[in-house]
Simulated scan of single mutants.
Amino acid sequence: MTLAIRRVYHIAAFSWYAFVVKILAAKDGEQLPPGIFVYGGPWKYLTFLNLLLQMLFFGLAALSDLQAGKKSESTLNRCKDFLFSVFAFPVGMFVVILFWAIFAYDRELVYPATIDTFFPPWINHAMHTLVLPFLLGEVVVQPHIYPQTKHALQALGGVGAAYLFWIIWVYLSVGIWVYPLLAHFSTPGLGGFFFFNMSVVALLYMLGNKLNSQFWSKDVTSRGQ
C-alpha cells in the first residue's frame, strides 16, 4: 500500500473520529433521556472510551506517516503498533460485536429506545458500526508488529480490570448499572459474564494477530512472538 494512500486513510479516519467525539461533546448540558444518567458522564461508557481510543490511534498513525523513511523501530511506531494490536483492534471489534448481539436480542438491555430522541441513528452507527470497517481497513493499509502474546494479554487484562472496577464504582455510587443488562445478573453471573467478555477480547486480539500475519509477510510483522 502506497504511503500516499496510507496517509489519506489515517487522516480521514482521525478526522472522522474527532468529528464524532465533537458531536458527542456538544450534547453536554442537553436534557438527558431515560436510560442515561449524569454520574460519570460519557466516561462510564465503553463505547465513548473506544471512540477516544480509536481517535488516539489514528492520530498517532497519521503522525507516524510523517516519519516515512525513518527507522521503523522509532518510539512513535512502537506505540502505534502496540496501541492498535493490543487495544484498538480487539476493544473496537468487541464493542461492535457485543453491542449488536445484545441489541438484536433486546435493545432495552443496552441501548433503550428513548435514547433515539437524543442520538440520531447515524450517531449510533458511528459509535457501534463504522468502527469495524475502519479497523479492517487498517489491517489492509499497513502491517503492525505485535508484542509477545503474554504481554499483550496482561495489558488487556489490566485495562479490563480497571474498567470493571470503574463501572462497579459507578454502581456503588448511584445504585444504577451503566448498562441495564447488568442488573439481570446475580453476583456469580456477573463474574461469569465479565470473564466471558475478557475471553472474547483475548480471542479478538489473537484474531487481529492472525489477520495481520496472513495479510503481511512474517518478517514484517513478527517480533519474537
Rank of each mutant, 00 (worst) to 15 (best):
I176K: 15
S199R: 02
F37S: 14
K218E: 15
D106C: 10
L190Q: 05
Q154F: 11
V95R: 07
W169T: 12
R107N: 07
C79V: 06
L182M: 13
S85K: 12
P90I: 06
A4E: 11
V170K: 07
Q31P: 11
I23K: 01
D28I: 08
V159H: 10
V174C: 14
A4R: 09
G69F: 04
S173A: 11
L66D: 03
L156N: 12
W100V: 05
E108H: 05
V96M: 13
N50I: 03
L56G: 06
L3T: 03
L135E: 08
W122Q: 01
A104H: 06
L181K: 10
I11C: 11
L190V: 03
F215C: 03
P147Y: 01
P121D: 13
M55K: 01
K71I: 05
K44H: 10
L32A: 03
A13S: 15
V159W: 13
E73H: 00
T114V: 02
K210L: 14
I97T: 02
G189Y: 13
I102V: 13
S64H: 07
G191N: 11
V21Y: 05
N212T: 12
K150S: 11
Y205W: 04
W100H: 09
L181E: 12
L32D: 02
N50G: 08
V159C: 12
F14M: 05
K27M: 04
H128M: 10
A12C: 09
H184A: 13
W216K: 13
V110I: 15
E138G: 02
A162C: 12
F119G: 00
A4G: 05
I123L: 00
W16T: 12
R6L: 12
T117H: 05
I176F: 11
F37K: 11
M127I: 04
N212M: 12
Y163G: 08
L53F: 01
I97F: 07
F215I: 09
Q142M: 12
F48D: 08
G224P: 13
G158W: 11
V95F: 11
F134L: 14
G92W: 04
L156I: 15
L32Y: 00
L66T: 08
A113K: 09
